[in-house]
Amino acid sequence: MIEQIPHILVLLGLIASAILTYYFKDLLAATLAAGLFSFLISLEFYILQAPDVAISQAAIGAGLTTAIFIIAIGATGRFEGESS
């Protein structure tokens, strides 16, 4: 039971970061919340003993996808309905 506490905390953090991604009006903050979601899900994969998937999720989800989203936000606009 005591070793499940980090697992439960990671699951609650996943739900919280997903809600934050949905509710932020600032798209840059929403992108950073999505990066936090990706990092937490890679931690979850590591807890479930799948280090292969954890490495690829941490590199692609938390690194490259966030960079691509930030580049796209820089090219368009920071808030919804705004065209730079």
Partner: peptide
């Protein structure tokens, strides 16, 4: 609905064993 979902996930994480 989020409370129900988190309770469901907590029960899943505690009862079912992976592997």
């Amino acid at each position: 609905s989020l409370l129900i979902l988190s309770a469901f996930l907590g029960v899943m994480a505690l009862t079912f064993t992976f592997g």
